[in-house]
């Protein structure tokens, strides 16, 4: 039940794009078509769902103050490597993305076809790194981290697909020239974000 609450909270109330501004670059660049938006959204769910629990493990058993206690070595146990978390997280993300790409290519060609070109882009999507950093900041447990990862991805999916659908609708609208494209996208995002604000009234 608590996990379900967390999922609802992460998808709607604290939407990673609309409330935290994470993953904006790809959100803006790839929301022109619904198909590409869907592809990218799926890829983000997938990668966040894997990297969050994985980075949780790294942080818990390798980096945190005293995390190396399981080795039984006094000196190792007293190490605090948490300053390395940024570099290690990004390395993990980059290698997972690469790895997922290889596995999909070999065993699930149709899925690879669908996600294909979006996977490499994800490495530099700040939603992924942000997901891992927030998870550390908020001190989640393993199940919570997993649920958080997947639902943050779903939040991204929801936002980008919604955005793509709206942009498709307004393609032939009469927008002032300077506002066309990026400017209008921002304002629509703002309006969507106002819409999502309403969810914060939900009592969990």
């Amino acid at each position: 039940m608590e996990l379900l609450n967390l999922a609802v909270k992460t998808i709607f109330i604290e939407n990673i794009v609309l409330a935290y501004f994470l993953g904006m670059c790809s959100f803006l660049a790839l929301s022109k078509k619904v198909e590409t938006a869907t592809g990218l959204g799926m890829a983000v769910i997938f990668v966040l769902g894997i990297t969050c629990p994985l980075n949780w493990g790294i942080n818990e058993y390798l980096l945190n103050d005293g995390a190396l206690a399981w080795t039984g070595n006094e000196q190792l146990a007293s190490l605090d490597l948490s300053f390395l978390n940024l570099i290690l997280f990004i390395a993990i993300i980059a290698s997972i993305v690469q790895f997922v790409e290889l596995v999909l290519d070999k065993y699930f060609p149709p899925l690879y076809q669908a996600l294909g070109i979006f996977l490499p882009l994800i490495t530099v999507n700040c939603a992924i790194l942000g997901g891992s950093l927030f998870m550390v900041e908020r001190d989640y447990t393993l199940p919570q981290a997993t649920v958080f990862g997947i639902s943050a991805g779903m939040g991204f999916f929801l936002a980008i697909v919604g955005m793509a659908a709206i942009r498709k609708k307004i393609r032939y609208s009469n927008i002032p020239p300077g506002l066309k494209g990026l400017g209008m996208t921002f304002i629509i995002t703002g309006l969507m974000s106002i819409g999502f604000l309403c969810f914060s009234g939900i009592k969990l």
Partner: peptide, 26 residues
């Protein structure tokens, strides 16, 4: 809140692009 930030940036982009005459074709 978040929406304010989005809208302000949107407006700044509008003003700036009108000044430098850059138009994006969708």
């Amino acid at each position: 809140l978040a929406p304010g930030a989005f809208i302000i940036i949107g407006l700044i982009i509008w003003i700036q692009r009108s000044v430098i005459h850059k138009v994006e074709e969708d």
